[in-house]
């Protein structure tokens, strides 16, 4: 591996995990990417985590919502982290 983007190249047509801004996570099959990290994914599961505070008890309530998208274009600037599935090599 010579540059970090090679890691993404190795993940083409594999399932990847993407951490985005605003506590969103994506899991999907990577079809294409570019130097900005714009990406095209299919069979995507988006998880949105939100933390709310209970007004009476002051407890933090973590809620997760998921939704499925068939095909998704992700704009690169919201990407924080990309991780390929665990490989045993």
């Amino acid at each position: 591996m010579e540059e970090p983007l090679d890691l993404i190249k190795l993940s083409l047509s594999e399932r990847v995990y993407i951490k985005c801004r605003n506590s969103r996570e994506l899991r999907g099959t990577l079809h294409a990417y570019d130097q900005h990290l714009n990406m095209v994914l299919s069979q995507v599961e988006e998880t949105i985590t939100s933390v709310e505070e209970d007004e009476e008890t002051g407890e933090e309530i973590v809620s997760k919502r998921t939704r499925n998208v068939g095909m998704l274009f992700v704009r690169g600037d919201i990407v924080v982290l990309v991780s390929p599935p665990l490989r045993t090599s």
């Binding site: 591996m1 970090p4 995990y17 990290l37 924080v80 982290l81 990309v82 991780s83 490989r87």
Partner: peptide, 26 residues
Amino acid sequence: MNIAMEQTEEYVDGQLKSKYGDCFIR
């Protein structure tokens, strides 16, 4: 300053949250 890391551990507020075999950080 894109980074590729191995055997990565993610810490939020000093607590281990998850692990990644390989990871790319924008």
